[in-house]
């Protein structure tokens, strides 16, 4: 009797794991969409809460320290989405970094972000000789925003 319960319980847990691994959840555990995927959704992707991830297109960052207005372009190499956000970005935010923004894609084709996260790669290297750690560079921006 007790053994039956254990085997039954084990079967349920294994089934849940199997479902997690191979089932429909695989689609839902995608934490963010790429610009290409978001744009491919067409009007379905407009106005609904969604996360968008990609790289900050180098040279696209426009930061107004007075109004705390931040504009940049997120790219996946194939497509691009312009993003608008307010407030100081996380300290690691900069040109060329990976980012994930939370918010809604507006009808004007601009993603209105309510949250901004930096996504790091798995590479850890000190700056090459002649380069400076970006931390110092960011310090200047943060100070100018205060």
């Amino acid at each position: 009797m007790k053994r039956g319960w254990i085997i039954g319980g084990a079967a349920v847990i294994v089934a849940v794991f199997a479902w997690l691994l191979f089932g429909g959840l695989q689609k839902n555990v995608v934490f963010f969409l790429t610009p290409k995927e978001l744009l491919a959704k067409g009007t379905d992707g407009v106005g609904v809460p969604v996360r968008l991830g990609g790289q900050v297109k180098p040279g696209s960052v426009k930061w107004n320290a007075q109004t705390l207005d931040l504009r940049f372009i997120v790219t996946d190499g194939a497509r691009e989405v312009p993003v608008h956000s307010t407030g100081a970005p996380p300290q690691m935010f900069r040109d060329g970094m990976g980012v994930v923004v939370e918010g809604r894609f507006g009808t004007a084709g601009v993603f209105e972000a309510t949250g901004l996260m930096v996504k790091h790669s798995n590479e850890y290297r000190p700056p090459k000789p002649g380069e400076e750690a970006h931390e110092k560079y960011k310090t200047l921006i943060q100070q100018s925003s205060q």
């Binding site: 300290q91 310090t139 100070q143």
Partner: peptide, 8 residues
């Protein structure tokens, strides 16, 4: 506070 100090 600077970034470096808050990181510390």
């Amino acid at each position: 506070m600077t970034t470096a100090a808050s990181n510390l």
